[in-house]
Amino acid sequence: MPSETPQAEVGPTGCPHRSGPHSAKGSLEKGSPEDKEAKEPLWIRPDAPSRCTWQLGRPASESPHHHTAPAKSPKILPDILKKIGDTPMVRINKIGKKFGLKCELLAKCEFFNAGGSVKDRISLRMIEDAERDGTLKPGDTIIEPTSGNTGIGLALAAAVRGYRCIIVMPEKMSSEKVDVLRALGAEIVRTPTNARFDSPESHVGVAWRLKNEIPNSHILDQYRNASNPLAHYDTTADEILQQCDGKLDMLVASVGTGGTITGIARKLKEKCPGCRIIGVDPEGSILAEPEELNQTEQTTYEVEGIGYDFIPTVLDRTVVDKWFKSNDEEAFTFARMLIAQEGLLCGGSAGSTVAVAVKAAQELQEGQRCVVILPDSVRNYMTKFLSDRWMLQKGFLKEEDLTEKKPWWWHLRVQELGLSAPLTVLPTITCGHTIEILREKGFDQAPVVDEAGVILGMVTLGNMLSSLLAGKVQPSDQVGKVIYKQFKQIRLTDTLGRLSHILEMDHFALVV
């Protein structure tokens, strides 16, 4: 994948999101292997301009796509893939009243899908469409860049269908997702969380590099694949309309690839034109409109599966009536509230959605109805927002919020430890010299600072030695090549209790 991002070429006709291997024109390309080798690009942008032909009021008969309808489940399912879809609609009884809503608040519980998330729908649909058009064949390999849930859905379907599955996901995604993927037989590649989507090191860039190296491999490409919004247009939206008897006044959905909100909203605009569509985008993402909503100094966020630093091709923002931004604290607070007060075992993005819903639905009156999409299960986040310690460490809970008995030293300040200034190293000294210094002084790690004293990161003896043994660096290389740029900081005025929580999850903390 090139470091400079080429513009994806656009073909003359058809839909841009065809499933299957992508040609340089962004659509299915038939021909000899030699032709494909000559024409197939190194990668295709996940934010390529959409060429979708959908228009409100256009006859369904003019759609270029294969459409399906929700099917009634048999008493005995032939395999677990038949437990994807037909998820329950559940009334939220307490939270709406707590925040003064007059309307009825309903939750579409997508964590009841077989793999635990709304992404099971698009995973199965992308595979079925690729099999139907002859792209996927027995023994082929599926590769997908994902925040985890699409990966789980694909790995689940691949396990049943017999495909090899490789999932490329950023490091910030939970260990629970990784464990589930491994249990399903998927191979996992992790990428830096802070890598831009168009960087060769991003999950998108690495996935395309693997595709170019592995024979008979395919990126189904949830960011561009029409099967993504079509899955929701054909099934999720129809289920909502049936469950609500066609009567709903507002739908609120958090947005990642945009397939969920695009597919549902398009069908609702056709069948229930008075329904307002509300999009939820986390602070630090750029999906919301108008652009002024996205202006923030924050560039990272903890909530998973929603928000991006690019506009995915499948996201149709014209069908969203209003956007709201959400933050991590309210997302996790509301997710825990949904679990504790409503018994809905949902993930953090569901918290984002409901946090926005109780604001947006203030305009609705008694007798009206708001539906929220709860995308995934708490299963993926047992060591994250479900953990009091994690919430404390991230600053989303305060010590006084917890009532468990603490040891005698818990409320003492870090400054009472009488710490001395640490050994520091410059980023320009060599790895070999740094190892000598650390061994001589008896230290395992040291902060790396520039000549102005600005902290650049941390270097550890173990990481340097393993990097040297693996051949990633040489003793003569500058130590700046092996620094940890993500590390926890703590102030002298913070409590030892807070430091204790940090050290339970990290090997060190830097006192500043």
Rank of each mutant, 00 (worst) to 15 (best):
E9P: 10
S199L: 06
S123M: 02
P46T: 00
K94S: 15
K82Q: 12
I214Q: 04
Q7V: 15
P46A: 04
L241E: 03
G26H: 07
T135I: 05
E9W: 05
G116H: 13
H65W: 01
S174Y: 01
K108H: 02
I167Q: 08
G185A: 09
E171D: 11
T257Y: 00
T235E: 14
T53H: 09
G11Q: 03
P21L: 13
A60H: 10
G263R: 00
K97I: 15
E29K: 14
L77Y: 08
N212H: 04
A60T: 12
C244H: 01
T87W: 00
L81T: 08
T146C: 02
K211L: 09
S61R: 14
C244K: 02
E144H: 01
D133Y: 14
M89F: 08
C109N: 08
G274T: 04
Y223A: 01
G263N: 01
I95D: 00
I264M: 14
K36Y: 10
L251G: 03
A195V: 15
A159S: 04
A195H: 06
A195L: 03
H65N: 04
E62P: 14
A265K: 05
R125H: 08
G148P: 01
S254R: 04
D238W: 08
G205H: 07
K75A: 15
P215F: 14
C165R: 03
P192D: 07
K271G: 06
E128G: 02
H17V: 14
T260A: 07
R224L: 04
P200I: 08
D35E: 15
M126Q: 05
H22R: 14
K102C: 09
V189K: 06
G31F: 13
N194V: 06
H232W: 00
G11S: 15
I167A: 09
A158W: 01
R209M: 08
T150F: 01
K267Q: 15
K75I: 06
T236R: 03
D79P: 04
E9S: 05
G14A: 07
G153K: 01
Y223C: 06
P49L: 03
T135K: 11
C244D: 00
I122C: 03
G85N: 06
K94C: 13
H67L: 11
K269L: 03
A226D: 09
L154Q: 01
K94A: 09
M250V: 05
G20K: 13
I188D: 00
A48W: 09
K82F: 11
L106T: 10
T260I: 08
I122Y: 01
E34F: 14
Q243H: 10
A265M: 04
P41S: 11
T13S: 04
P70I: 10
R45N: 09
L42C: 10
F99C: 12
G246K: 04
H232L: 00
I76F: 06
E239H: 01
P215C: 00
G205C: 11
I219N: 09
T193Q: 09
I44W: 04
G151C: 01
A231P: 08
R196A: 05
I142L: 10
K30M: 10
R18G: 12
L241Y: 13
E34I: 05
Q55F: 06
G185H: 00
A265N: 06
A158I: 02
L81A: 04
L56A: 10
G256E: 00
G185C: 00
K98P: 10
D79A: 03
S19W: 15
V118A: 14
I219W: 00
A159V: 15
G20F: 14
Q7R: 02
D140S: 09
R121G: 00
E187I: 10
Y163N: 01
D221E: 09
G134E: 06
A237C: 12
I44T: 12
P41Y: 10
C109W: 06
E270N: 06
Q242R: 11
P229G: 04
C15D: 13
L124D: 10
V160Y: 08
S227R: 07
L56M: 13
P229C: 01
C165V: 05
C103I: 07
N149V: 01
P59V: 04
P88E: 04
G205T: 08
T191K: 02
T257A: 06
G148H: 00
E29M: 11
C275D: 01
P6N: 10
G26W: 09
E62R: 03
E201S: 15
H203Y: 08
I76E: 07
S50D: 07
L124Y: 10
V10A: 09
H22S: 04
E128D: 08
E110F: 02
E213K: 13
E9F: 10
G20Y: 03
N113E: 00
E128N: 09
F112R: 01
A207D: 04
T5M: 05
N216H: 11
A226Y: 09
P41D: 08
I95P: 00
K271Q: 13
M169C: 02
A60K: 11
T68F: 14
M126G: 03
D79L: 06
Y223D: 00
F111G: 04
H203R: 05
M173L: 09
D140W: 06
A69I: 04
G274H: 12
S23K: 10
V206E: 05
I80R: 02
G148Q: 01
A231S: 06
S254H: 08
V255G: 05
A69V: 13
P16L: 14
K39Y: 03
K172W: 00
R209D: 03
G116W: 13
I127T: 09
C109F: 06
G256I: 00
C272W: 11
N194C: 09
L184K: 00
D179A: 08
Y163M: 01
R190L: 05
D47L: 02
I76Y: 09
L124I: 06
N194F: 15
G57S: 14
G14P: 12
G85H: 09
I92W: 00
I188T: 05
A183K: 02
G162Y: 01
K247R: 13
P33G: 10
S199E: 06
E37V: 14
I167N: 08
I44Y: 11
H22Q: 11
P46Q: 01
S63H: 08
K94M: 14
V178L: 04
G263I: 00
T191C: 05
V189N: 06
T235V: 06
S32W: 13
K269D: 02
L77W: 03
R18L: 11
A157N: 07
G57D: 13
D221M: 04
T235Q: 12
A237V: 15
N113S: 14
Q7E: 12
A195Q: 11
E213Q: 15
D221H: 07
P88I: 08
A48R: 11
R196K: 13
T135C: 03
I167F: 06
D245E: 12
T53F: 08
L156N: 01
L136P: 01
I261R: 01
Q55C: 15
Q242Y: 08
D198R: 06
I76N: 14
G205E: 09
E9V: 12
G274F: 14
T135A: 11
K72Y: 09
R125D: 05
L81V: 14
K271V: 12
I188F: 05
S3A: 11
F111H: 01
V180L: 09
R132I: 07
H232T: 00
H203S: 09
T235R: 05
G162D: 15
D245W: 03
G148S: 05
S63E: 04
C272D: 11
T141K: 11
I142M: 08
P138W: 12
C15G: 09
P88L: 06
S199H: 09
C103M: 01
Q222A: 01
P16E: 09
A253Q: 08
E40G: 15
P192M: 06
T141M: 13
D234P: 02
V168P: 02
Y233R: 00
E128S: 07
I95Y: 00
D249S: 07
K177F: 00
S27W: 14
V90F: 00
T13F: 09
N212I: 06
T193H: 09
G258E: 03
E4G: 11
A226P: 11
G263A: 00
L56D: 12
R51S: 14
L28C: 09
T87Q: 00
P170N: 01
P70S: 13
A195R: 07
L220S: 02
G26I: 05
H67F: 14
L220T: 00
T262M: 07
R276F: 10
G151T: 00
D238P: 11
N93F: 03
L105I: 15
H22Y: 09
P78K: 09
D35M: 09
L42W: 07
D35N: 15
R182C: 08
H218C: 14
I76M: 12
K75W: 13
P78M: 03
N194K: 13
F197Q: 06
P33S: 10
H65I: 04
K36E: 12
L156S: 02
P2A: 15
E171T: 05
E34M: 09
G115R: 08
A183W: 02
D221S: 01
P46S: 02
E40F: 15
V160H: 00
A253T: 15
S50Y: 02
G148T: 01
G11L: 07
R276G: 06
R121F: 02
A130S: 09
E131A: 11
R132A: 10
N194S: 13
C275M: 10
K271I: 12
P2N: 11
